[in-house]
Amino acid sequence: MKKNWPLWEVFIRSKNGLSHKHVGSLHAADAEMAIENARDVYTRRSEGISIWVVESGNITASSPNQTDALFDPANDKVYRHPTFYDLPDEVKHI
C-alpha cells in the first residue's frame, strides 16, 4: 500500500463567464475528498464559485525536452498575429 494519498490538480473558476484556472495541487484519498480539501485550501478567501479536480497522473504534459520542436516554429511567423490591421478606436478588447 502506498503511504501517501494520490496527488490532485485543482482548477478554480473565480466567476461566471471565466474559465477554470489551475491554482495548485493537493493530496486526497479520492475525488470527493479532493473537492473538499480544495475548498478548504484554495477558496478560503472567496477565490471561486466552482472547483474541478483531476488526479495528477491523468494529466498528459508536453515534454520540456521538446520545447524547441513544439514551440520555436511559431516564433518567426508573426503573420499569424492579426497585427497588420488598422483598428478603429471604437473597437476595444483586441
Binding site: W5, L26, H27, N37, D40, V41, R44
Partner: peptide, 11 residues
C-alpha cells in the same frame, strides 16, 4: 495528520 486536514479543522 496532513496539511489539508490541518487547514480544514482550523477553518
Amino acid at each position: 495528520p496532513v496539511l489539508e486536514q490541518d487547514i480544514a479543522l482550523t477553518n
